[in-house]
Design a protein around this nucleic acid. Sequence first.
DNA 1: TGCACGGTTGGACTA
DNA 2: TTAGTCCAACCGTGC
Length: 533
Amino acid sequence: MPSPLSIHLLHNSLRLHDNPPLHAISELPEPSTFISLYIVTSKSPFSQSSEVNKVNKSRANFCLESLEDFDSSLKAIGQRLVCLQSKDYETDSPDPDVEYAETLKAFVGQFPSTTDITIYYERETSAPTLRRWRMVLDEVVILSNVSTKLFETNNLHPLDHYLAKSKGSPPNSYGSFCKIFNSLAPPSPCLPTVTTLPPPPTLTSTKNNYDIPKLSDLENIDQTTGGSGSFAGGETEALKRLELTIVKNFDWAATFEKPKTSPNSLNPSTTLLSPYVKHGCISPRLFYHKLSEAYEKSTKPNSSPPVSLHGQLLWREYNYLHGYATPNFDRMVGNPSARQIQWDDDPALLKAWKDGNTGYPFIDAIMTQLNETGWIHHLARHMVACFLTRGDLYLSWEEGAKVFEERLVDADWSINNFNWQWLSCTAHFYQYFRCYSPIAFGKKTDPNGDYIRKWIPALAKMPKKYIYEPWEAPLVVQQAASCIVGEHYPSRIVENHTTTSKNNMSRIAESYKLHKEAVTAAAASSKKRKSSS
DNA sequence: TGCACGGTTGGACTA
DNA sequence: TTAGTCCAACCGTGC
């Protein structure tokens, strides 16, 4: 009898702690083969080439980047842990999900039909991954020797538990969600770190032997962002950061208030744990419980949701719940919770925003930081999202969401789309008269404009008085600062924020009015249908 | 049905 | 410097 084979579709659990399949696999009798199938699922360059990826490879005994020669390689080295990385998936395949499914099917097909194969996969809630999983499972589960095991570690509670408490549809306010959360038992503790996986075997073949970095090789990688802008990925780094920001700094963690942190401080004012949560290097449940310990340890008055750190994790849950329960969550059309707004379409404006060439220094500094490091503060995200949509450019939030999805190191489908809907007043938030000013907002936390000077060197010498609006500087001042607007730094793409944003408010009001009429008409028609039947 | 109220984190002005 | 108030008036919820 061939030894049983376990396959773990790695997606949100790139860690040794809180990892149910690894626990199951560590308990398998010898000889067993464990294939850890890791496929890059994000287009983010940080995901494709990130240290997360490298750390994952460092755990594998052997890495393959295609199925070619798989069989001979596997036989040759007889290892239990393989990282199969689909090279094609990283490229612009017409349908990466089909490719993924076919890859897995071909992979499984190489084993004798008498091999018992178990596929472990994370319960997914975001539509894109859900589609991928569906395709994969449709392809392979029909094989008689394949069974699946589902696990859920990407949320504090299974999302269906929340829905069961809210009559099947997600609550429309965060406060209501918090009540539901508090009515449930505390999130279950996370599983301990797996330590019993077998050591790497001695390789007898050098074929397909890629250069796999070891954890120790990653020690010297710059662990900051906001500075040189690279993230060291992986579980080790995530746990180190958790220790530093939460466990050791318990007073800070227990009194944390998000709105009081700064979108433009030179050293990030938040935990920076989001990329690790997103890439599955740290379990949200571990994060939650370590926070609870910090709250208990601190003698200072604890902050609470929505502004606290627990509040941030609950916000994530809330966003996930909407992403899970709303059809077409990443689109306006066909999305029942989205206001239908006739956004403008102007590729040149979109490009200027993407490239950080709007002529508004605060916007351009934020977009430059995003483009160079993959991370920006949450309130900075608010600022540029409002500017792109209802505030100034009046372009679709879907375009902005695509850019964030591609460039943010912590881009998370549910949270990203929720935020863009929020900021554009498409759904969840409707106070469109509350608008971020690209001139005033940044001044609150950085009146000297040091953040702008850092990311837009052309403006480094601009006097404080004009740093947020250099077009106001007299020509002699611009000359003295070696920065002529229109020559060394772009002219504004929106002539006047105040009048433009006021005009946009009227446009949103008009869309809301049409929306209300449509809803009323639909309700009337539904009532009529019911009474006639 | 109508009203009061609260809503993860606005801006401008005043004391 | 910080906290409070008003701006003009959105939505969904609950009474």
